[in-house]
Amino acid sequence: MERAGVGIIEADLVMDAGPCERDIRSAARGNGIRFQNVSMSFGGNRGGHPTLAVDDFSLEVAENEFLVIVGPSGCGKSTLLAMAGGLTQPTTGRLSLGDEPIVKPGPDKAIVFQTFSLFPWMTVIDNIEFGMRLNGVSPAERQRRIDYYLPIIGLKGFEDHYPKQLSGGMQQRVAIARCLVLRPRLLLMDEPFAALDAQNRTVMQEELVRVWSAHRPTVIFVTHSVEEAVFLADRIVVMTRRPGRIKDVIDVRDTTGAQHWRAAPLDQVMRRSDFQDLRGRVWDLIRDEIVIE
């Protein structure tokens, strides 16, 4: 493992991780993701001005870490996820997952997209199964994973429905399930709960923590909700307005200590004053970046 930065990540982990979390995290270190001076600009090839969407973004996300990115609309959050997922290549800079550069998309880097992306001609089951079929998962194993996740996403009884017959929130839950069944190394989620109502959102946040804890893929999670960020994240990256740069990185574990509060129900956590303090701190950082155009 001759990889620059590993030492830093590890030191980080040892300092922040509790006794139970440390073992899991240091067991394998192949699934961390690194952004090295990543910039992305769009267009400009037909005489127009290129848009600099992401500007010199450098970050290391440790294996098994739950990283949340917040920032004003248009600051390049989705662009960052697309690059991490291998769907687009940065204009300059490099990304790597473990020891390998990220050059193409694949099932090890699962993405829950911000906008509708289920296959309309497939039923719920077919949508969830499609990725597993493509990757040669055996029928018995496919069935096992579906049986496991279908109740979790609350879609039992909707197996044979088409996406158009589901609500926006239900569709998004199918999109999450189709990623989880792949057991990805990296899970990229772009405002996955934005379409859910407040109650369902809370339930899904808690469920996500639960299913994530079982396999602990490295997560990069984008949200507009500061509360969601503070509840779920190990670390929160606050971005500046466009061109997106890192404004601040807040380590939630500094506040929670070894026992992360996301293991407890959200309504309980919300009553904690340290939770509310952190929430206020993050919100202040973001507020400065919001401009009404």
Binding site: A82, G85, L87, K104, P105, G106, P107, K109, A110, I111, F113, T115, F116, S117, L118, F119, F130, G131, L134, N135, R178, L182
Partner: peptide
């Protein structure tokens, strides 16, 4: 075909023929 669907399929591991 919406780019989103193509991207989703590529993410899930679809090759050119798929």
């Amino acid at each position: 075909v919406p780019a989103n669907l193509i991207n989703a399929a590529r993410m899930l591991g679809a090759g050119n023929a798929s």
